[in-house]
Design a binder for these strands. Structure first.
Lengths: 220, 220
DNA sequence: AGGTGTGAACCCCTTCACAGCT
DNA sequence: AGCTGTGAAGGGGTTCACACCT
């Protein structure tokens, strides 16, 4: 299955849940594609990697397809998760309902700052980072979230990996190096804004060029 | 310039800033690539779209290249930004130092909840969403951040676009539709976790298959 | 008729490998 | 000798267009 397809399956799943909640029983690839923000050819190609879950001339059964995608992604099972670094972002992540509602269960919030120990966030007490190994062992944690400052990220990452975590979601603005077999995904808020700024800057330049052309300054 | 290259320029910029702070004056494509987490061929190809800023046999001048990339992205200028939706995530974004340190200046925090008006977050008072149009006009805001719940996102987006915002960073788990000329980038925390879960699930399956093969249950 | 599933064409991006400059 | 800049080759993903099924 292409990586690009994997990255879109959760989008389809969300769209199907939305259709399901609205009471829709069946949908065409066109409808689902619109709800997911892609074109229908891409949607059908993506779904074809899962199998033939549609009916020609009719479309897809919403509940059935929803289950099949959830199963393929793996969110029909329960994924225990630890979050390391409970600053502003860690707080927000701990309170984010989108995690718990998708098969992810936060089993612990860890922070290196002794002053924060015991503080309760979203029903969980903040614990010492040294509790990590025991937690991973006891709960079978495979996924860890890093929301620490950048300088701490690699050390935290190494400890997570040593403890047995094999998938990491990294919010720290740092490049992490991990051994083979460990997956890292990175979310960088500032980079996203910079990409927007690049395009925004070019819009302004395009406007200026256009204005200049209309003024007869440039052009054949 | 390829979109994939644009998305990596901020990563190179961060690596260069890090090298600069460490007092490094010159670096090879190999060193910079390692710091940025890419291979050197890709780095050189990316930089070649900006021009010839390196010296053969020597490498790149850190300060010079840093400035050139910053200029290309557009972060040498000041970008006023509004954040809409000051829940947990909005709070975290308002306090995120990575924005202000990269040419982005948060000019307003807006929320629809009247109970939160006047509350001060990170030195800024929360204002009514109806102040939007005036703010965009007064500060020349081109970039907006949506951190509202999903059901509100499209309405907020429409208002932002109508007010003149042409770049949107969307943290709400919703597909936004915008007119041509408006850029949207989406950051979805739950989707990132689901992608990790997919690969994690397959690791377990691979382990089981391997164990079965070693047991002689499967195999030629 | 209507809509899915899919080979084939197309396009973008990555990687290779080396010419060319210092 | 060393490292950049870049054509050329290779791979992956998207889009097209239609065969095929209901």
């Amino acid at each position: 299955m292409p990586e690009a397809t994997v990255a879109r399956l959760p989008v389809y799943l969300r769209a199907l849940i939305s259709l399901s909640e609205r009471g829709t029983a069946t949908c065409s690839s066109e409808e689902l594609a619109t709800a997911a923000g892609v074109n229908s050819a891409k949607l059908r190609k993506d779904l074809s990697y899962l199998g033939s879950y549609g009916t020609r001339g009719v479309g897809y059964d919403v509940e059935y397809l929803r289950y099949q995608i959830a199963r393929e992604i793996g969110v029909t099972q329960d994924w225990p998760v630890v979050i390391v670094g409970i600053g502003n972002l860690g707080h927000a992540l701990a309170n984010y309902s989108g995690f718990s509602s998708r098969g992810f269960r936060i089993v612990a919030l860890l922070d290196a700052d002794p002053d924060r120990l015991g503080e309760v966030v979203s029903g969980l007490g903040i614990r010492a980072f040294d509790d990590l190994e025991g937690l991973v062992e006891d709960h079978g944690v495979a996924i860890g979230v890093i929301a620490t400052p950048a300088p701490a990220a690699q050390d935290v990452c190494d400890r997570l990996v040593a403890a047995g975590v094999t998938s990491i979601l990294n919010f720290a603005p740092a490049v992490l190096s991990v051994p083979d077999g460990v997956d890292v995904r990175k979310v960088d808020l500032s980079i996203e804004l910079q990409i927007l700024a690049y395009h925004e800057q070019r819009k302004s330049l395009a406007d200026q060029t256009l204005a200049a052309e209309l003024d007869g300054v440039v052009g054949a």
